[in-house]
Design a protein around this nucleic acid. Structure first.
Length: 505
RNA sequence: GGGCGUGUAGCUCAAUGGCAGAGCAGUGGCCUUUUAAGCCAUUGGUUGUGGGUUCGAUUCCCUCCACGCUCACCA
């Protein structure tokens, strides 16, 4: 049972009185002739015209501000499009109606108001209300802030800011903070743009299983669940890769999926247990083709969403003009650290060389893991402008095809922007015997019982044995991309309902 | 999981080892073109939780909870 605050009790009493008067505070049907945006646009259109009929409009929206001044009241309502001012006047409505509004309507209530659009002395387009109606009473006061618009900039005074409340009660955050709604509009338009780009390139959007009997395609700990009737343990997918590549065996040449992955790992400003991923696979392409397409797609999306091919992220101007800088991993590391990874073909040797760097690492780690450490600490943070780093060590890339003249290196690249890894792609391994060997290698390198250990996916190997066309594949964290597009440092800002620890009530 | 930090009114924030404050919101009043409306008055608190030190703790110490930053983890 809800415990009501004093402010809520005041509103409950108003609600009770409304009902007593025969007013339904939650009516079933609503009238609306214009959105706020349409009304304003329509008014501007006819404003200067001779003998134009005044615009009659019925608007709806949430009460954001009330300014009673004796025999008149100004109020602002906001609908999904825009905010617009309402003008209540005793002369028009009668004092009784005006008092009724002032007495029983609160900030946060949804109202319906009918009247004529006009412009006030101070120049604001306003609805002069001739009749109005409660369409949903708000019982809990929103943590609404006063706002002032100065030169088009909205200045807020003491708005909801506590991150915990904002994320736990995202509905309140959204209701009160317009800029938060904009983040999610941007998010959706970025996803639409990716779809429209890939669709235009002849890719087919598909859906593959989220509940999987065997997880794979990435090194991550999965969430486990259970199907009762089938008496079968299932995993929430950690990537789409192995299913999408099965589709290439099936004869689709270009497929992509945008959806949720789940990883049972640490939560941080850039990790949420469930996150959105885009992956595409392109038959008869290699990683150089994927590099080109990646650059085009990212530029397309940035342009679509931002309006130009550059943006500002955490104070850095980032340009997405084609082509990106492309650097071989070995050279990039040599440049940043003075270490030539090619000169060190064992973990021990590389660990010795890394000893001179001011860097913490576990010298027991494998060569591949040590190279990964070097990338994370010496390379990634320096890559602000879009950069492609290519040719990775085989042992941390079990699904990528190796280079012809260098079996320890694979045809793989990662795209970095703003000091973050943005995407990961490679020429996909399509040799079933080689793939089986890689799975076995991987199995050996993990301890028995290691949760990241890959189970052998026999069905995937069977698919590959039927023949898989040569292909290139690509994966990108959509949330991280949206962080870039919206200049947010935390993944939670770009997730509508980020995961938070359960809190006892 | 480790380190650091934060938690005070519905919201944003002050303050102090000795009666816990402001602005906004709320309530009552004045006000017919305001817009962070204004003016007058006024309500509102188990200072995250549990314990300890103390004559006295919101303040000092410890436990726990949540959040933030950071490290670890993270193909």
């Amino acid at each position: 049972m809800a415990e009501y605050t004093k402010l809520e009790k005041v509103r409950l009493e108003k609600l009770r009185q409304l009902r007593e008067m025969g007013v339904d505070p939650y009516p079933r049907r609503v009238e609306r002739t214009h959105t706020a945006q349409e009304a304003i646009k329509e008014f501007k259109r006819i404003e200067g015209l001779e003998d134009a009929e005044p615009i009659q409009a019925t608007l709806v929206g949430r009460l954001r501000s009330m300014r009673p001044m004796g025999k008149i009241t100004f109020a602002d309502i906001e609908d999904g499009t825009e905010q617009i001012q309402l003008f209540f006047r005793a002369d028009t409505l009668g004092e009784e109606q005006l008092d009724f509004f002032n007495q029983y309507f609160d900030l946060g209530d949804f109202v319906q108001a009918k009247g004529e659009i006009f412009r006030t002395r101070s120049g604001e387009i306003t609805l002069s209300v001739s009749s109005f109606k409660m369409i949903s009473k708000s019982l809990s006061p929103l943590p609404a802030a006063k706002e002032e618009v100065v030169d088009g900039e909205v200045i807020k005074y003491a708005s909801l800011a506590d991150p915990e409340t904002r994320y736990r009660q995202r509905y309140a955050d959204l209701a009160v903070n317009r800029d938060v709604r904009d983040i999610f509009r941007t998010r959706t338009s970025a996803i639409r743009a990716m779809q429209s780009f890939l669709d235009g390139q002849g890719f087919l959007e598909v859906e593959t299983p989220i509940l999987q009997p065997i997880y794979g395609g990435a090194a991550a700990k999965p969430f486990t669940t259970h199907h009762n009737q089938l008496k079968q343990d299932l995993y929430l997918r950690i990537s789409f890769e192995l299913y999408l590549k099965r589709l290439l065996v099936g004869g689709f040449e270009r497929v992509y999926e945008i959806g949720r992955d789940f990883r049972n790992e640490g939560v941080s400003f850039k990790h949420n247990p469930e996150f959105t991923q885009i992956e595409f696979y392109w038959a008869y392409a290699d990683y150089f083709d994927i590099m080109d397409l990646t650059e085009e797609m990212v530029a397309f999306v940035v342009d679509k969403v931002v309006g130009e091919k550059k943006l500002s992220y955490q104070g850095e101007e980032i340009s997405f003009d084609i082509p990106w800088e492309r650097i071989e991993l070995r050279e990039a590391l040599l440049d940043r650290t003075g270490i030539d990874i090619k000169a060190h073909d064992t973990g021990v040797s590389l660990a010795n060389a890394m000893g001179d760097l001011d860097l913490e690492f576990n010298p027991e780690e494998s060569r591949g893991k040590l190279i990964d450490d070097l990338i994370d600490s010496c390379l990634e943070p320096t890559l602000i402008q879009p950069t492609i780093i290519y040719d990775y060590p085989r042992e941390i890339s079990p699904l990528a095809k190796s280079k012809k003249d260098d079996p320890q290196t694979v045809e793989r690249f990662e795209g970095f922007v703003g000091g973050m890894e943005l995407c990961n792609a490679f020429t996909e391994l399509n040799d079933p015997l080689d793939q089986e060997e890689r799975f076995l290698e991987m199995g050996r390198s993990y301890e028995e019982g290691d949760e990241e250990r890959h189970p052998m996916d026999e069905d995937y190997l069977r698919a590959m044995r039927y023949g898989m066309p040569p292909n290139g594949g690509f994966g990108m964290g959509v949330d991280r991309f949206v962080m870039l597009l919206t200049d947010k440092h935390s993944i939670r800002e770009v997730l509508l309902f980020p995961h938070l620890r359960e809190k006892g009530e």
